[in-house]
Design a protein around this nucleic acid. Structure first.
Lengths: 143, 143
DNA sequence: CCGCAATCTTGACTGATTCCAGAAAACAGG
DNA sequence: CCTGTTTTCTGGAATCAGTCAAGATTGCGG
């Protein structure tokens, strides 16, 4: 969990102005992995009650563009954000309760980046989502 | 491209009633790979001008539940539907123009289904999305 | 300390998708 | 072929995430 100072350095390093809402949004994303926008707005307002939802959307877009956070959006879910960036990890998602967990790729560092036929595409990222049931839901269902 | 009769058989085989809108929706999904809902509504209405958008949504849900079509929803895009099901293929998506193409998995028949640490999840499907630039956009950009 | 932009606020708006209740159509048995 | 039951379709209204626009603020380099 980075300190406020470290987060400010992150922002400066990305050539972004350091504003209270941005620090609060960054803090929230670090504190709540895979949170949706609503949860982030809630967390931000616990510190700065008067931040508009618009500001949170703007911050999230700016942070995403600067690669300080990553946006993920599994089918049937609203946008979610996470702070782990640049380490090429993937996600397991529970079909029943929506729980999301991180997984490091089984194949290696830059996994699956080779499609068998790339149709002329220049591929720069492979995103993998594993669908299934989390431990709790799977137990609940089989009993 | 299956005939209308074959599509009707598909519906019957899935224990779904054979209705004109359903056949039209199935036809549209087969004819327009990766089409969004609007395009499908348009295609359906070319044959049956009076179908409501609600009926199309219902059909798509019913067909999805019956596994006759597959719903895909990449980040930042509306829901799209495709007719290839059960053959474990994946998608390349162009970041610039949104073009979607099919790719067979490079690793084999049931690829990537093994996460390195599954967190107790029972995984039943791995979905892979390759992000990049399609041939056209990549040419346009480098020139 | 100044001034320029970038950023934030407010509030309305869009567009995709869903919900609801009544009307209509399809399958099964007679 | 005909009726009843069940499922589907229609049309309209509601919801919800996310976006737009204009004006007020604020961070930051000089």
């Amino acid at each position: 969990m980075p300190t406020t100072l470290e987060l400010q350095e992150l922002l400066r390093g990305a050539a972004l102005r350091v504003t209270r809402p941005r620090v609060a949004v960054l803090t929230a994303v670090h504190a709540l992995p895979h949170a949706d926008t609503d949860s982030i707005i809630g967390a931000v307002r616990r510190e700065l009650p008067d931040v508009s939802h618009q500001a949170v959307y703007d911050c999230l877009h700016a942070l995403t563009a600067a690669r300080l956070v990553r946006r993920i959006q599994p089918s049937g879910s609203v946008a979610r954000y996470e702070s782990r960036v640049g380490d090429n990890h993937h996600h397991v998602i529970c079909r029943s309760c929506g729980l999301i967990a991180d997984v490091d790729c089984a194949i290696g560092h830059a996994p699956c980046l080779t499609a068998s036929d790339d149709h002329g595409f220049v591929v720069d990222e492979a995103e993998v989502i594993y669908w299934g049931l989390c431990a709790d839901c799977s137990t609940a269902r089989s009993s």
